[in-house]
Design a protein around this nucleic acid. Structure first.
Length: 501
RNA sequence: CGGGGCGUAGCGCAGUCUGGUAGCGCGACAGCUUUGGGAGCUGUAAGUCGUGGGUUCAAAUCCCACCGCCCCGACCA
């Protein structure tokens, strides 16, 4: 039988279209009637819930607590920090009225104009800062370590589902500290949390690093990010952690009386990841048959597919499957009970199987009369070829499943690491650099590790000529003095260059 | 906001130039035959042709206005 891919076009044929088709085929989300806004469907939201739960535990383990702040921010608040307003003004949605009334022609029109317009939060530094200013009076009130899970709105010009939508879901941590060193430690700590989450849960290797001035968060002193490589070689900024210095504390008046009796401004940080991570998951692990989920984030770990041909075996097969499901659901995996689904929809076997392949469920168990008779279960894994079916003794399933899921998790991370390694090059000359990136934007290039002496003119030029930017200045790895391939200026270390989402 | 394109069934499109009363593919639904790699046959349902106005015996088609969407550029988790 001829090979057929579940997703058309393939990644190699048209990567952006492939991405859309995976989302559609896996039933993750779809665009809504509202411009640039998506509806996240149960399978996609299930992934987000798992991301939330695990991140939330990590935040709590590092001393943070959750709170919730308003969706609306008075326009004047946004203006308090000069760089901040400049960075976000263009993408703010603004509420100017509070009431609708019927006009002469019967159409509803906004009636009550607000005295002060409200901005729909594009990020919450300013509104949270206003509250922190009230809450922080003494050094005893610090540190203040809060996080919120929220939706935010950024009126982007061009949107892409999960990667850049007008409204998206995220978490934003906001902390205030008495001293600079402590705030810097917090910034670094949360970047490490993100890197751990990306690698250990998403199986997505990342490079933690510092952003250049050109890519810094508006109003921050330093921005750090984790950068991941997608399968088209482009970089995805997957999470950011900002050291805000005293900029926002000054703007919002977060002051405290220190132990020495002096009044001081607090030092603040903020950090966030969003539903963009789901886009990263798709583009890190998906293949030409659809989504491939790392077990630790899969809404369903195991799907049981009863093979029913005739009515006389139906009851027996379903009962057998039900008993296996019950046993598996008592089996722990990653600190929680295994999530198991029985798919008894009245569909043809192939159609049913492929729907789960496209959804990326880690393990499929097919059970029919033949298996029952032989005392086995036919197991297939999403990370292996769809034809690679293994007969596993029924008695060994529950005991072995956690190990298999761990193996899949490890396998996905290793593959992603290998892919990144295969598409990362150290480059030392201008010509080599241009050759690497030259050509179509869609060309699979990858990451270049090259020297850069911090000259913004070089960044600007590469951005214009190749659409390539410095993704980050890696925190790890060796200091290796060298020279910028473009200017010859001395550089202390290599940085990551790539095209980016 | 500037340049280009497009609005016809759930989705993808033809029909518009040359006005004549709405069509194809996929999907959906139903029945039968199938069934351990995503099926076949038969049948059914589904559209105020983006909105408003104009021309005409007659408008998806021509004219005007408006609305919306997509692509390219600036912006971006």
């Amino acid at each position: 039988m001829a090979e057929r891919n579940a997703i058309e076009p393939t990644r190699a044929q048209n990567y952006p279209e492939w991405y859309q088709q995976v989302i559609r085929s896996a039933d993750l989300a779809e665009l809504s009637p509202v411009r640039g806004c998506m509806v996240i469907k149960p399978w996609g939201y299930g992934i987000w819930e798992n991301m939330q739960r695990n991140l939330d535990e990590m935040f709590k383990a590092t001393g943070h607590r959750n709170a919730y702040f308003p969706l609306f921010i008075p326009l004047s608040f946004i203006q308090k920090e000069a760089e901040h307003v400049e960075g976000f003004a263009k993408e703010c949605a603004v509420v100017t009225h509070h009431r609708l009334q019927a006009a002469a022609d019967g159409r509803l029109v906004p009636a009550g104009e607000l005295e002060e317009p409200l901005v729909v939060r594009p990020t919450s530094e300013t509104i949270i800062g206003a509250m922190y200013a009230k809450w922080v009076q003494s050094y005893r009130d610090l540190p203040l370590l809060l996080n919120q899970w929220a939706n935010i709105v950024r009126w982007e010009m061009r949107t892409r589902i999960f990667l850049r939508t007008t409204e998206f879901l995220w978490q934003e941590g906001h902390t205030a500290h008495a001293g600079e060193a402590e705030a810097r430690e917090e910034t670094a700590r949360m970047l490490r949390v993100y890197a751990d989450f990306a690698e250990q849960y998403m199986a997505m290797p990342v490079i933690p690093g510092r952003k250049t001035d050109a890519e810094r968060f508006p109003g921050a002193v330093e921005t750090y990010s984790i950068e991941a490589m997608m399968q088209d070689g482009k970089a995805l900024q997957a999470g950011t952690s900002h050291f805000l210095g005293q900029n926002f504390a000054r703007a919002s008046g977060i002051k405290f009386l220190d132990q020495d009796g002096a009044e001081k401004y607090a030092w603040t940080t903020s950090w966030g990841v969003s539903t963009r991570l789901i886009g990263g998951l798709i583009m890190t692990h998906g293949d030409d048959n659809g989504l491939m989920l790392p077990p630790r984030l899969a809404p369903t770990h195991v799907v049981i597919l009863p093979v029913i041909h005739k009515d006389d075996t139906r009851a027996r097969v379903l009962e057998y499957c039900g008993a296996l499901a019950a046993e598996l659901r008592r089996t722990p995996y990653d600190g929680r009970p295994l999530s198991v689904e029985i798919d008894d929809r009245d569909l043809r076997g192939g159609e049913k199987t492929w729907s789960w392949i496209k959804k990326g469920v880690p393990v499929r168990l097919e059970i029919g009369p033949r298996d029952i008779a032989a005392g086995v279960v036919s197991m297939t894994r999403r990370d292996l070829d769809a034809r690679e079916r293994r007969a596993v003794p029924r008695a060994e399933i529950a005991g072995g499943i956690a190990g298999i899921l761990d193996e899949i998790q490890a396998n996905l991370l290793q593959r992603a690491r290998d892919f990144r390694a295969a598409h990362t090059r150290e480059i030392n000359t201008r010509d080599e650099f241009y050759d690497f990136f030259k050509g179509s934007q869609d060309k699979l290039a990858g990451f270049v590790m090259a020297h850069w002496a911090g000259d913004p003119a070089v960044e600007q030029k590469l951005r214009e000529e190749l659409a390539v930017t410095v993704r980050c200045i890696p925190l790890a790895g060796p200091e290796e003095p060298g020279a910028c391939p473009f200017t010859g200026a001395a550089s202390p270390r290599r940085v990551v260059f790539a095209r980016a989402y």
